[in-house]
Nucleic acid binder design. Sequence first.
DNA 1: ATAAGCACTTACCAAGTGGTAGGTTGAATG
DNA 2: CATTCAACCTACCACTTGGTAAGTGCTTAT
Lengths: 199, 199
Amino acid sequence: MPTLAPTRTRLLQVASIRLAERGYHGTSLAAVAEDVGVSKQALLHYFGSKALLYRAVLDQLGQDLLQMLFSAMQDGQSAEQQLDSFFAELTARAVQDPWLPSLLLRVLIEDREAESGDAALPLPLQDFLEPLIAVIQATERLKGASFAQALATALHLLGGACLFPAAQAGLAQRFGPVVVEQLRDISLTQIQALRATRQ
Amino acid sequence: MPTLAPTRTRLLQVASIRLAERGYHGTSLAAVAEDVGVSKQALLHYFGSKALLYRAVLDQLGQDLLQMLFSAMQDGQSAEQQLDSFFAELTARAVQDPWLPSLLLRVLIEDREAESGDAALPLPLQDFLEPLIAVIQATERLKGASFAQALATALHLLGGACLFPAAQAGLAQRFGPVVVEQLRDISLTQIQALRATRQ
DNA sequence: ATAAGCACTTACCAAGTGGTAGGTTGAATG
DNA sequence: CATTCAACCTACCACTTGGTAAGTGCTTAT
């Protein structure tokens, strides 16, 4: 029982990885298509254009993150527990799927990587960021704090969770795989401590 | 009294900004040259090739960061004070020159953005990262800790200092310039608190 | 049987890419 | 005065890019 349009799904997966690794401009449609084993025009058949492919990848990423957040919100009772649960799962996934944190950081860093003439369309990941900030604002420590304060915390937590996994490959080249392996263990326990401290 | 080769310097500046904003593959030699007001071949005259231009930009970034670190090491007596001084200056510069943190994060995230056939040439920013880690290892809290622990702290501090400035422009679009302005103030005071906490 | 539509394919194109070849200019040097 | 050299320039090239046109084969609905 194949899922609906398995080729489309595979294209989306491969495109996510390549876009995370090499960025929008560094990823060619032909390369993605070749990886999957179809023609470039098959890709355009499903996604219409490169910009729309990128949009689809980011939408998928946003949905994945949002689902992780919702699932975490059902795990814990307090906002603190929910955050713990979410970032634990994010870190776990990020360490083994490094393209996820890479893509997330790229989206945060990059300003208008893919220019889409239509300026009115929603910003990617916005549907994930807003509820995440809401959870942070529900935290005891940030009950009366400003929105900016919550946003700063969100950035801090996301950065802490994503930077190491995204940098993993490069760090292995710099300092050797052994150090990176130790670093991975540290990273997995670090995130809980992070939340508990005063940022 | 113009400095030596002012055109080269301007090319390097403009290339830094464009490479930070749009990445290696998103930056064309023609665009950089046009921004400066010279021909593409003038650029190639100075740097030889795109990969060498990229290398020159990263070398310049590494030197800038290293100089900031050395200057900070003369400011303070203890390793803690030195770190404080360095990250305070880094954050200050990063907030007003967003291309700097963007480029730094890109280098950390991106694995082999510009393939240079010669595999033996040194990794960019390595000359900055190693002394930075050394200072961190000299900290009281990390006196007996592993190298990986110090590296984790370095990543954490760099992420905390660079993520907001790099994301600044995008965040202004998402949440409005007012919030970003508040966030800037928070960011400037946050980094000291960061060092003091358990990471 | 046939029409429709999905899931692709090959063939092609205009624009842009990094890079080369071969100048030209003007100042410094012998 | 002749030469050399850095600092550019115009013209061009091979190649890749995203995207279009026009099919082909296969399944499904009528």
